[in-house]
Design a protein around this nucleic acid. Structure first.
Lengths: 132, 132
DNA sequence: CTCTACCCTAACGTTAGGGTAGAGTTGTTG
DNA sequence: CAACAACTCTACCCTAACGTTAGGGTAGAG
């Protein structure tokens, strides 16, 4: 399928999808004779994974690194034990960072709720404090 | 107090505090003869407000605009009724946007938790899937 | 003085895309 | 087959919110 449909399904912009390709995150599986990007379901799934990762605040480079690690762990080609261990350690590092980021998001959310509440309270106060 | 202590207390970086000044968000109440920025408790409080606003994803321009509105509502100088109403409407708009943003944050948080869980589950699986 | 810990400005770098221009491609009509 | 709408391409410039040097000045203790 072409980029437009992918964009619709992933809710990512065309620009974003192309940008992900530029930085090596997700390349279309093929191109049409005319040069149009052609994506498979697998490509779309990968974009979905990235979309789920986005709120974790990883940079695109980190995401590429992580995806690369899991791809190689999932590949059919067997790995040497130490290679495998190194990849797992990389994934573990990201998992720890992800957990930390989840905590940060909780803090952010509560700050945001707090601020929104303050703002609303203030408006209610102002509503019947007619000092004009 | 000087910028370093302000940074420590607000958990904002020196660069960030200076940047806020550059864009007209919070200016230090004074400067030392040598040119050091000198902040009062009030300045720090304002920075704290901004820090609470940050997770809401407002731009610095919007924050300046909102702070400006609340400042003028809180000022001692009385306002014409229509001016006051205009300011309140501005604040209301931001409050609505804040509420929307809180919703977004909730979605992000749940996506992040989801992803972190996936990653952890995967690591547990890998841990005893010794195919090396 | 002089030393150390701070602080200053100026200016370019980075990240994750947004937007636009100008040109080519696809698939559908008449 | 030509014409056409809808879509896509590359290339390039733009933005926000800081980070990061570089090169220097300041506060105050000893």
């Amino acid at each position: 399928m072409q980029i437009g449909e992918v964009a619709a399904r992933t809710e990512l912009s065309l620009r974003t999808i192309r940008h992900y390709e530029e930085t090596g995150l997700v390349a279309p599986s093929a191109r049409s004779r005319g040069g149009f990007r052609l994506y498979t379901e697998t490509d779309v799934a990968r974009l979905m994974v990235i979309r789920r990762m986005k709120p974790l605040g990883f940079t695109l480079d980190q995401m590429r690194d992580l995806l690369d690690a899991t791809d190689r762990l999932d590949a059919d080609t067997p790995l040497r034990a130490d290679e495998r261990e190194a990849l797992l350690e990389r994934v573990r590092t990201y998992q720890r960072e992800a957990a930390a980021q989840v905590e940060k998001l909780r803090v952010q959310l509560s700050r945001a709720e707090d601020f929104e509440g303050t703002l609303r309270a203030r408006l209610e106060r102002d509503a019947h404090t007619d000092r004009a």
